[in-house]
Simulated assay, not measured.
Amino acid sequence: MCRSIKTLREPYAPEVTPADIDAAALQYVRKISGFRAPAPHNAAAFDAAVAAVAAATATLLDQLVVRGGGRTAGAGS
């Protein structure tokens, strides 16, 4: 779906920064909303969605267990 979003778990990304997570969240919200940048009356909803997706992504990465290793190196690690 979102070809510009990179895989953010080991071994594809040995180190994931909060900026990586934010960029992926922004790309996802842009894709599903159809807006590159929202109109001012939609900005709060757009920004809240980006923050929610970024938080969910960070949680996911922190909880994933990669076979043959431990937890992934998420932003909260």
Rank of each mutant, 00 (worst) to 15 (best):
M1P: 09
M1W: 11
M1R: 06
M1N: 14
R3Y: 10
S4A: 12
K6M: 13
T7M: 15
L8A: 01
R9Q: 13
A13L: 07
A13K: 08
A13E: 03
P14Y: 11
P14N: 13
E15N: 05
E15V: 08
V16T: 02
V16R: 00
V16I: 15
V16Q: 01
T17A: 14
A19F: 12
A19N: 12
D20F: 08
D20I: 05
I21N: 01
I21H: 02
D22P: 01
A23K: 02
A25Y: 00
L26I: 12
L26Q: 11
Y28P: 00
V29Q: 01
V29W: 00
R30Y: 02
R30A: 02
K31T: 10
K31P: 02
I32T: 15
I32R: 09
S33Q: 07
S33K: 03
F35K: 04
F35E: 07
F35Q: 09
R36D: 11
R36I: 05
A37D: 15
A37Y: 04
A37R: 03
P38W: 00
A39F: 06
A39V: 13
P40W: 06
H41Q: 06
H41W: 13
N42G: 14
A43W: 06
A43G: 05
A44H: 10
A45C: 09
F46T: 00
F46S: 00
F46P: 00
D47V: 03
A48C: 11
A48W: 12
A48Q: 15
A49W: 01
A49I: 03
V50M: 02
A51C: 15
A51I: 09
A52D: 05
V53S: 02
V53E: 05
V53D: 03
A54H: 00
A54S: 15
A54T: 04
A55Y: 11
A56M: 11
A56S: 13
T57H: 04
T57C: 10
A58D: 04
A58P: 00
T59Q: 10
T59G: 11
D62C: 10
D62K: 08
Q63I: 13
Q63R: 14
Q63P: 11
L64W: 13
L64R: 14
L64I: 11
V65G: 07
V65I: 08
G70D: 06
R71E: 06
R71W: 04
A73T: 06
A73E: 14
G74F: 01
G74L: 02
A75Q: 10
G76S: 07
G76T: 08
S77N: 09
